[in-house]
Design a protein around this nucleic acid. Structure first.
Lengths: 221, 221
DNA sequence: ACACAATTTTCAGTTTGATTTCAGCTTCTA
DNA sequence: TAGAAGCTGAAATCAAACTGAAAATTGTGT
């Protein structure tokens, strides 16, 4: 799950980035409006956290620009305390959710997961498939036989992405894009290796190979 | 599960009540502060959802009254979005959790269940886990072998946070945020050091390391 | 104010294990 | 049937976590 954090407060970015990463997000940071706008348009993010008080170009402008480009990227807007007008403007500009500063990190995390889950209509901190349950707080999967498996960071990210996009063909490059942030450009077989490890846990036939196209996570069969 | 919904916005009540009922709660509604206070004192609820902006008697007053009657009813406070001071007041008055309006129903539900789990523990200043009992007034732990250990300030805060959030991956930055009073995040290994000390007291396998993700306090094994 | 005790933080050397790489193998398809 | 794509087991890597001790800070009693 790849996330754009558009925020200029250094201290806040430092802690938020760590929290988000350990919650399994690949985090790209933009500390000004121009970069934020560019990244939001050029890269593929699953969610953006956008501070309205960015330098160079205001968050509102950035958001409007995204929306005018038919970019439906889910956006959580951060507003300064007591800035009622910003909130309204934010919604008008197409924000999906907002959060007033200061806030508890837990609240932001909860809103992000809620937003992510909205598209597949599964609330809460677990992602369920037939005979599979992924606990996002524990970062574990429980399989049909009742066994609970701990997942490493990358295993967790990959499986969550599969579950959120079950029954779709996911190319290896798309998987890489959503699992790693922009520091790491991969030309290797990491995905293959991790698909193998996941297959070992969730069952071989669960992840189907589409030679030349990618993988499909099956929920029916 | 019986729930008191203290809220005067008719429209909100209508939708919330249905959602809560379909989530399995028996819902009583109070649309003003006087009724809310009365019901909270006279009936037995598992949880209350309390809007601070009630007519006739403010939510804060209601909450204070409940607490002064030694009523430990778990309370989730609903505040207007930008009213940070209300949250603080709410916490001081004894709220267990808060939620800023507007919110997603899923989030309210998640918080209610979280609160229910939390309140399974006995009130009265002790937090219990299997083979562990944390006395919050004395700041001591009693372990399975009957040994009582005195805890230093930081050891206590850390262990309490672990107990309140057992079975969840807690990142080091999240732990620091909750242990230090909103100071700047420093680049040190204090958490590692204190985790080590706690492990010495509560047992090594009680606190599990998730490399790159954080720590999990185990209550089952 | 002082010495002394307890607590918190820093530091540096060591260990660990998640991630990545690699090389040989298998399977598919053009 | 040859070349590409994917699979697989094992090994190398390197940041993250562990550890013991010492330094710094805070608290306490005299």
């Amino acid at each position: 799950m790849r996330l754009l954090l558009a925020e200029d407060d250094r201290d806040l970015v430092d802690t938020l980035k760590k929290d988000l990463q350990s919650a399994g997000y690949a985090v790209d940071v933009a500390d000004n409006g121009v970069d934020a706008e560019y990244l939001g348009n050029e890269m593929i993010y699953d969610v953006a956290v956008l501070d309205l008080g960015l330098p160079q170009r205001s968050g509102i402008e950035v958001l409007k620009n995204w929306r005018s480009n038919a970019n439906h990227l889910p956006v959580i807007v951060l507003t300064a305390r007591n800035a009622w007008h910003e909130r309204v403007d934010g919604f008008k500009a197409g924000a999906d959710d907002y959060l007033g500063k200061p806030f508890h990190v837990e609240e932001l995390l909860a809103r992000i997961t809620a937003l992510m889950h909205r598209s597949i209509q599964q609330p809460g901190g677990t992602l369920n498939a037939i005979g599979l349950s992924l606990d996002e707080e524990q970062q574990t999967v429980t399989t049909a036989d009742g066994q609970q498996h701990k997942l490493t960071g990358i295993e967790f990210r990959l499986l969550r992405y599969f579950l959120l996009h079950a029954e779709k063909v996911l190319s290896k490059s798309r998987l890489t894009e959503h699992i790693y942030d922009f520091d790491s450009e991969k030309d290797s077989n990491v995905i293959e290796v991790y698909v193998r490890r996941l297959r070992h846990i969730v069952g071989n036939d669960r992840i189907e190979t589409r030679r030349g196209q990618g993988y499909v996570f099956r929920n029916n069969n």
